[in-house]
């Protein structure tokens, strides 16, 4: 076990874990979306889990830092909060905010983070922009809500871990990136019906079970 200091408090962590996991395990919340407990290789794609480490010039993502003894970490500095708020606003600028009609309402990661960072569910001065189509219904038992998705990639990761080969994937590129079901024809119906780990892990209700057959 190693001892490090986070926000002035000493915490213990096992060698080899990441700073993010160490903090979360010690009940120190750091906003995050793409981190999955138990999966070693981190995507580092959501860019929310920033912290400041003594000796480093700029905030770093805590999911990519292995714990070291005597690390001095601050999770609540102006630079950290600024990046986190910008990242959240960016995500909200492409998010269809319609919490009342969303199955993730009250357990949504975006809601939690907005509350934690004390900001509204609004993108600030950024232009709101939604993609077409709103829903991809091509999968036999799943529906994908394009404008809820935050592209954290957890669904693809659990599908890969559980099934060896992911049936869902990222498709297209850049701003147009989506999660896609290409080619998952009827034969996937049974296996997907039984698994639905992707639905369970989705932090925002972008992947849901088809309501009617």
């Amino acid at each position: 076990m190693l001892t490090l200091t986070v926000d002035g408090k000493e915490i213990q962590a096992k060698k080899g874990t990441t700073l993010l996991k160490a903090c979360l395990d010690n009940d120190i919340y750091i906003p995050n979306l793409c981190y999955i407990d138990g999966i070693e290789e981190t995507a580092a794609s959501c860019r929310l889990c920033f912290v400041e480490i003594e000796g480093e010039e700029k905030p770093v993502t805590s999911c990519t830092v292995p714990v070291k003894a005597s690390l001095k970490v601050k999770t609540d500095t102006p630079a950290v909060r600024r990046l986190q708020k910008t990242a959240l606003r960016l995500l909200l600028s492409v998010h269809h905010v319609d919490c009342k009609n969303c199955p993730a309402n009250k357990k949504c990661a975006l809601q939690d983070m907005a509350k934690f960072l004390k900001v509204g569910l609004k993108p600030g001065h950024l232009q709101h922009c939604l993609k077409e189509p709103e829903i991809d219904t091509s999968h036999p038992c799943l529906d994908y809500y394009t404008n809820r998705c935050v592209l954290c990639g957890k669904c693809i990761q659990v599908c890969l871990t559980h099934n060896g080969q992911p049936e869902i994937t990222f498709a297209r590129r850049g701003f147009n990136t989506v999660v896609s079901f290409f080619g998952t024809a009827k034969n996937e119906k049974d296996s997907c019906d039984e698994c639905i780990r992707c639905v369970d892990i989705c932090p925002v209700g972008a992947l849901v079970l088809k309501s009617s057959p």
Binding site: P166, T169, S180, G183
Partner: peptide
């Protein structure tokens, strides 16, 4: 021997 979605994901990238 990979899912078609993987091929699609790579091709569209």
């Amino acid at each position: 021997d990979i899912p078609p979605s993987e091929v699609f994901g790579v091709a569209t990238f």
